[in-house]
Design a protein around this nucleic acid. Sequence first.
DNA 1: TTTTTGGTTCTGCAATAAGAGAACTAAATA
DNA 2: TATTTAGTTCTCTTATTGCAGAACCAAAAA
Lengths: 155, 155
Amino acid sequence: MDSIKLNDKQLALIEKLGLIFENGLQPASARIAALLLVSDKLELTFDEIRELLNLSKSATSNALNLLLSMERIEYITKPGDRKRYFKSNLSDWKENMKTKFLEFDKVHKTMREVLEQRPHSTKDFNQGLEEFINFMEFMNREIPVLFKKWELSKK
Amino acid sequence: MDSIKLNDKQLALIEKLGLIFENGLQPASARIAALLLVSDKLELTFDEIRELLNLSKSATSNALNLLLSMERIEYITKPGDRKRYFKSNLSDWKENMKTKFLEFDKVHKTMREVLEQRPHSTKDFNQGLEEFINFMEFMNREIPVLFKKWELSKK
DNA sequence: TTTTTGGTTCTGCAATAAGAGAACTAAATA
DNA sequence: TATTTAGTTCTCTTATTGCAGAACCAAAAA
């Protein structure tokens, strides 16, 4: 049966994934996000999370609320049960990934501004910069195409 | 002529780019990286950088060495001149961008590990997770193809 | 040989982050 | 009405970051 206890493999995976998620999350949130992917039981209560990860109540509360606000997790309730059951929000993850890919959109716009104010005298550099910007713009155009290609390939 | 003084537009761009670069860099390094793109003069000495950005010697030294070690900048020397002239390393930037794109490679591998240890009983979740992993793998396969397409389009 | 230049390294501080633990609270239960 | 539950919020510590300023150093110049 789906155990609430974590075995060694699962503990190791939580550490590993946790480190990956720490890019953009504080440690406690990162581990919770990892836990909710790794655990046999997918819907865990506040106290289960707290105990499995050895967190204080405050750390658990803040981390869960952060993840909820980022929509990386959500919770369900059960009739006649006051507890909330937290679970990973996989479908939103894909959205997140897409926006993350397009996040560097601002970069090329700002870089264009940089290019536009440069003196003509640094011609070689300006050309190199322009090529780099063009490359970023190319990627920005093509990545949404890839997304569509993926959606089509699923059908 | 190419001035070493920065005008208001340039100062604003350094702030703006600096914020963007702070993703992965400390503030001082981020501003230096920005400065070396924005400044009319592209090759700046230690002291010019220090004065233009109002940094201490130690902050300047550490930040420059960090950027050098990341190969985001490089320096040249001039005969009969003991100073080093620091400049942005644009060509390496493109390489950096490529590796950054492929950096999340580890993610899908670890996610596969997660999937493989999941109980069969959480079938729906496992399927969603698998689709997500497949999506990441798809992106990982296709992005190098995009790079090639770009290289070809330039010729 | 002494001084200057172009930095590097060390010490210390101020600000921020991360979380523990205790006090608190609102709704549900007894 | 009193108590328990399921959290939230507040206060305090500790660790880390980012940088300033001063001391230091090696090579070149005077």
